[in-house]
Simulated scan of single mutants.
Amino acid sequence: MFKELAGAAEAKRALLERSGPVTRSEVVHLAAARGRVLCEDIASPVNHPAFERAAMDGYAVRAADTRGATPLSPVLLKIDGAAGGGRCVPVRTGMAAPPGADAVLMKEDAVVRGKEVEATAELHPYKNLAAVGEDVALGEIILREGHRLRPPDIALLASLGLSTARVFERPKVAVIPTGSELLPPFRERDLKPGEARETNSLMIGMYAEVWGGSPRKTSIVVDDPDLIREAIAENLDADLILISGGTSVGDRDYAPPVLEEMGELIVHGVRITPGKPTAIGMIAGKPVISLPGYPVAALAALYVFARPLITMMAHRTDLPRVVPAKLAGKIVSRPGYLTFARVSLKGGVATPIMTSGAGILSSVARADGFVLVAEEVEGREKGEVVEVSLIE
């Protein structure tokens, strides 16, 4: 049996207090920088725009030449190659302002009469004309350290002539699947009695990447403490090690004892359902999370422990995504345990799917999110408004 069960909040706090964000950085090309987090401020190397430019299609003018213009009393301007002195120049959006111009008369406010234009609106200086540096000034800080790059951010940087950005490295996440009964996925043969396809590491690795990590997966390690020890030792260059399976208290559950032997076993057994067998420890200063072999239990432990750790390491602040919803039915929870209740969502209504069933992965595939029912709460009632964490 488990020696002592830890509360989920207590276990997570112990894990996060012993860990920290990745401080290593790298320079990446902007074309591959979407979603990356800046490790330094970026100042503009140029004025943008670098020249005065038309913000509208129309006619570049000297604003003073349009004084008093109205639809009933238009001002006549001559079409020419320079502006000012009663002259105007046809321009398109984005064109450089011609000599003498300090405003742009929109086409909608102009009536062409041969080689002349009737201006029907009075303009002020820089009306419909972008000044030098109006968008971004030379030396202006445009993006701060810690900012997660989005497509418009990257487009802005590229428009300033930049091609790279210095970002934090993604935390390296080693995924070690264990189990003598497991076969690699995608192998085209029928399973023999007692065998199972190893898919946890597939799910774990994908989530590590979604949350900002750089995952790498080892081959399946059979239930042998020496081989598990060897796999861990070979991956201590990672920032985080996630072990799948072998974490309960059976005769072939070697992960927690190996973790304790190689470093510090902080927690073995957490009051979370599903996910009770989860173990957490540190080896050579690196956090190690030993996840249950049952897939839903592994997913629950991933969300409760690995997600906050990976996002912290990756300097991510945009997760988790949570939405309010009204319960269509009662959620039954286990008193004293944090309960991972799967729900479907439609029109702001959350329908409970399942709170137990650590191995029923289809319950997650049918779910849009989950509700975490706190340890001190005995279920949630139909009609209650709850927070639903969306499954990425």
Rank of each mutant, 00 (worst) to 15 (best):
E26C: 13
A31H: 12
L38S: 08
E40F: 04
D41F: 04
I42R: 08
I42F: 05
P49F: 02
R53W: 10
D57C: 04
D65P: 00
T70H: 05
P71F: 10
P74D: 06
V75M: 10
A83L: 03
V91C: 06
T93Y: 13
A96E: 15
A96L: 12
A97R: 05
A97L: 15
A103C: 02
L105Q: 05
A110G: 02
G114A: 05
E118K: 05
A119L: 08
L123G: 03
G146S: 06
R148H: 12
R148Y: 11
A155P: 08
L160E: 07
L162T: 10
S163T: 15
F168H: 13
T178F: 06
S180P: 07
P184E: 08
K192H: 10
P193Y: 05
T199H: 11
N200F: 08
G213N: 00
R229E: 15
R229K: 10
R229W: 05
L236E: 03
I241P: 02
L242K: 05
P257V: 11
V258Y: 05
E264D: 07
L265Y: 01
P274D: 05
G275K: 03
K276D: 01
I283Q: 06
I283T: 07
G285S: 02
P287G: 03
Y303Q: 14
L309I: 01
L309K: 02
L309H: 07
M312S: 11
A314E: 11
R321T: 13
R321K: 12
K326T: 13
A328R: 10
A328K: 09
R334Q: 12
Y337D: 03
V343I: 04
G348N: 14
S363N: 15
R366D: 13
E375H: 12
E378G: 09
E381M: 10
E384T: 02
E392W: 12
